[in-house]
Design a protein around this nucleic acid. Structure first.
Lengths: 118, 118
DNA sequence: TGGTTATTTGGCTATATTACCAAATAACCA
DNA sequence: TGGTTATTTGGTAATATAGCCAAATAACCA
């Protein structure tokens, strides 16, 4: 038996955590969240996304590359355009959970305001 | 009606994306993922977590502060110790989705190896 | 009060991330 | 082939993040 039970993090666990963190980090940017949401509605090419996101096309390309490296999106060459699609649609459910953090934060904030008043 | 439908991102949407990204970013670190998982088993004080994570206590304290600012954990003073607890337990389900990205990545890798061989 | 333990914060360095512009590459059309 | 459009990549600057050590704070005990 190796080190488990309250001890330091095992190498195996460490690797698992790093792998997960990489994927989460790939999602941790407003523009990339937008891209993922948009792709959930269907394939989009770099140009289309660029117009919507409103930053330089090279920046959008880099964001897409981050998502692709993480395995979240996949590209599809079609003539001179490259269409991106979501590879893991379940990523969207994930957002519900994030939303619940936001709701809780908002509630806590309200409560704080009320307390202050009394 | 304001700008929706294919146009650039609205200010409102932008704000929503930024709020979400902040929370996701707070989770995007191996040590913080570990902390969240550990807290899902029950309250832990900074010292306990520090022993497990294996970095300086000041670093763990900073990680906890990131999670707290994001609204993911909550602290509970108890004598000279401060116990942290998960504020949003659903955060854990979230990991299943991340896991499915990892599985898909592994499968793609396998497939690639097979293709190379033929 | 003075000492001890738990935790946070300031200051610093190293590294990573994001954005832009300009240039390179790729695919198509005339 | 030369031109045009779509996309990626190199280079660079600004900012953010993660880690450590040392010092500050807080709570307890003798």
């Amino acid at each position: 038996m190796s080190t488990t039970k309250k001890g330091k993090i095992s190498t195996r666990t460490q690797a698992r955590l790093e792998a997960r963190a990489k994927i989460i980090k790939a999602l941790a940017h407003p523009s990339r969240l937008f891209i993922v949401e948009e792709l959930s509605r269907g394939a989009r090419c770099v140009n289309e996304l660029t117009e919507m996101v409103g930053v330089d096309v090279s920046t959008v390309s880099r964001h897409l590359s981050v998502l692709k490296t993480a395995g979240i999106v996949q590209d599809n060459k079609h003539g001179t355009q490259i269409y991106y699609i979501l590879r893991i649609p379940c990523i969207l459910k994930f957002f519900d959970c994030i939303e619940s953090v936001l709701v809780a934060n908002a509630q806590a904030h309200m409560k704080l305001l009320k307390t202050r008043r009394s």
